[in-house]
């Protein structure tokens, strides 16, 4: 019977995903605005740089940024751009703007802006995770610059993990 239990556990473990992309998240935060920055692991970065830094100059022109937005970034809408905003307990569809790409050594960076003005003085929480767990996100307090008080905690989401930032 114990073998059957172990086998069932292994099968259950097989359901959750394994990441092959690793993203370090950093934030600039105030009551009305949030800038989210992603820095990719080197292997994924290499692939993204090959595809989107067409002229290989390490700087992303508006055209290169637009191509990235069309081919990669927009696909992430169904994953809420790995940034899950809740206002007064209600999920809010994210509408990121001001997409900016950069290269930092061998890493590929993405930055976007989220407008929080419509939700001023409301209870807000922002989750950072990829439900499919193909990407593993990491967010530490040292990577957050904020003029508002907040709490940050790791959260268990059944089969994947993430981070929850709550405004105080």
């Amino acid at each position: 019977m114990s073998k059957i239990c172990v086998c069932l556990l292994v099968c259950a473990c097989s359901v959750f995903a394994h990441p092959h992309t690793f993203i370090t998240v950093s934030l600039d935060l105030n009551e009305t605005d949030m800038n989210v920055r992603w820095l990719f692991d080197e292997m994924t970065s290499q692939s993204l740089l090959e595809d989107f830094d067409a002229d290989r100059n390490g700087i992303f022109s508006p055209k290169e940024t637009e191509t990235f937005q069309k081919e990669v970034f927009n696909d992430l809408k169904q994953f809420s751009f790995f940034t899950h905003l809740k206002v007064s307990g209600k999920s809010i569809p994210l509408k990121p703007t001001r997409l900016f790409l950069w290269r930092e050594n061998n890493a590929f960076g993405v930055e976007f802006h989220v407008d929080l003005k419509p939700y001023v003085h409301q209870k807000k929480a922002i989750g950072f995770w990829d439900e499919s767990f193909l990407c593993a996100l990491s967010l530490e307090k040292e990577q957050i610059r904020s003029s508002v008080k907040y709490t940050l905690k790791e959260v268990d989401n059944a089969y994947y993990y993430g981070y929850l930032l709550e405004f105080l």
């Binding site: 690793f22 790791e154 268990d156 059944a158 089969y159 993990y161």
Partner: peptide, 21 residues
């Protein structure tokens, strides 16, 4: 929790990925 296990696997994957690079 399964997510703790997931976190451990993710960190192990990340470490191998970074070391290989």
């Amino acid at each position: 929790m399964l997510s703790t296990l997931a976190n451990t696997f993710a960190q192990a994957n990340h470490s191998f990925n970074t070391a290989i690079a």
